[in-house]
């Protein structure tokens, strides 16, 4: 589940963008500061990026910049959560969240309850893990509480969810990205999800 990194040089060769473009996008905050990861290599300091994130971001910028100014693009990409809201019935109909998850975690909410983007995100993450068979319902409840309590503290900064288990005992952690994490022997990393990526994914599904 390690995140793959790409060096700046590889990135430019792969996408065909220039150094100037990359720096301009950084100035305009189209590419978040946290994605610039400085590492020492044998040639000196080099900058790396999380591969999946940066490639999809560059793709988006290149697609949008023909129609929009860079400042407008920046608004569209802002890490802040969009203010989409959706009724639970709509979520079910569009298959964004499963009925099992909604019934388990929001049993008392009537069918037409309107959820904020944040809540939809939490359900979506939990649903993902449940469906993959990685997590039990009871653990899901704990995850929901963890997300509710700590996710807002990130204030739109890149955030990663780690779910590990050792000898049957499980725990969750939210980390600010990018970060390296090492575990003792016997710890099983069940899932490591970039919430930033999931937000992007979910945004795509909701619109």
């Amino acid at each position: 589940m390690e995140r793959e990194l790409i060096s700046k040089k590889e990135l430019l060769d792969l996408t065909g963008i220039s150094y100037g473009q990359l720096y301009r996008w950084k100035r305009k905050q189209l590419i978040p500061e946290e994605w610039f990861i400085r590492k020492s290599t044998f040639t000196g300091q080099e900058t790396f990026f999380p591969k999946e994130l940066i490639l999809s971001r560059i793709d988006k910028i290149l697609n949008m910049k023909d129609d929009l100014s860079l400042d407008q693009v920046a608004g569209k990409l802002s890490p802040a959560l969009p203010d989409y809201e959706m009724r639970s019935s709509e979520l079910l109909k569009r298959n964004i969240v499963s009925r099992t998850a909604l019934q388990a975690f929001a049993p008392n909410d009537p069918d037409h309850t309107v959820y904020t983007f944040e809540m939809i995100l939490f359900f979506y993450v939990i649903d993902k893990l449940l469906e993959a068979g990685d997590m039990s319902l009871e653990e899901g409840e704990r995850l929901l509480e963890t997300l509710k309590e700590f996710f807002p503290k990130f204030e739109g900064k890149a955030c990663e969810l780690v779910f590990v288990r050792k000898m049957g005992v499980s725990w969750f952690a939210l980390l600010s990205m990018p970060t390296e994490l090492f575990f003792e022997k016997g710890v099983k990393v069940i899932a490591r999800l970039s919430l930033t990526e999931i937000i992007e994914e979910l945004k795509g599904k909701l619109v």
Partner: peptide, 9 residues
């Protein structure tokens, strides 16, 4: 000399 930068992926 590195990749010529003229191709777009």
């Amino acid at each position: 000399k590195t990749g010529d930068g003229s191709h777009f992926a």
